[in-house]
C-alpha cells in the first residue's frame, strides 16, 4: 500500500496537468527505510515527449547525491500517461530499476491541462512483475504512520493546504 498526504498527491497531479500533453516525471523522496514519501522533486523530462520520459542525466545525479546526503531514498517515482490509462506500459516495466519504489502513474487523458479528476494509481514493479497496490491519502503526514510522540516531518512545498 502507498500512503501519502493530500498535499503530495495534489503536487503530483498539478505537475502532470501542467506538463500535459508531454509526460511529467519526478520523485517523492523520504527517509531511508521509512516508506514515507515527503519531499516532491519535479524532474525535467529530458525526452520532452507525450509518449516517453527520461530524467535528465545531470539532474538525476544531483537528485541521488542529495538523497544520499539526507539519508533518503526515492519512495515514489511518478510519471504521467497523457493519452492512455494509468497502467505501466511494457517500456515502464522494462526500464523500472528501483525495486523498492512505489511507481505512481497519473493519467491526464480525460481533462488534460484543465481541472478535473485524474486516474492516480500505484504499483510495485520488481523483476518485470507488476503489482497494483492501494493508495491511501491522508490529510497530514502525521497520519501517515509517524510514531506517536515524534514530530511529523512536513517538508513539501505545500504545507498549509489541509489547514
Amino acid at each position: 500500500m502507498l500512503t501519502l498526504t493530500q498535499a503530495i498527491r495534489d503536487a503530483i497531479v498539478a505537475h502532470a496537468k501542467r506538463d500535459h500533453p508531454d509526460e511529467a516525471c519526478g520523485v517523492v523522496a523520504g527517509p531511508e527505510g521509512g516508506d514515507r514519501p515527503e519531499r516532491v522533486v519535479e524532474m525535467i523530462n529530458a525526452a520532452g515527449s507525450p509518449t516517453f520520459y527520461e530524467f535528465d542525466s545531470g539532474e538525476l545525479l544531483a537528485l541521488y547525491k542529495q538523497m544520499w546526503a539526507n539519508d533518503e531514498e526515492p519512495v515514489v517515482i511518478y510519471h504521467s500517461h497523457t493519452a492512455t490509462e494509468a497502467y505501466p506500459s511494457r517500456t515502464d516495466i522494462g526500464l523500472a530499476s528501483e525495486p523498492g519504489a512505489h511507481y505512481v502513474l497519473v493519467s491526464t487523458r480525460e481533462h488534460g491541462n484543465s481541472e478535473g479528476p485524474v486516474e492516480f494509481r500505484s504499483y510495485s514493479i520488481i523483476d518485470g512483475e507488476v503489482t497494483e497496490e492501494e493508495v491511501r491519502v491522508t490529510d497530514t503526514s502525521t497520519d501517515a504512520g509517524t510514531p506517536a510522540g515524534e514530530p511529523a516531518h512536513q517538508s513539501t512545498q505545500h504545507t498549509n493546504e489541509s489547514e
Binding site: P50, T51, Y64, I77, T84, S89, T91, D92, L95, E98
Partner: peptide, 13 residues
C-alpha cells in the same frame, strides 16, 4: 565513479 540506472519509461510500447 557513480553508476545510476536511468529513470525512464512512458506510454510508448
Amino acid at each position: 565513479v557513480v553508476v545510476l540506472p536511468a529513470v525512464a519509461g512512458g506510454s510508448r510500447d
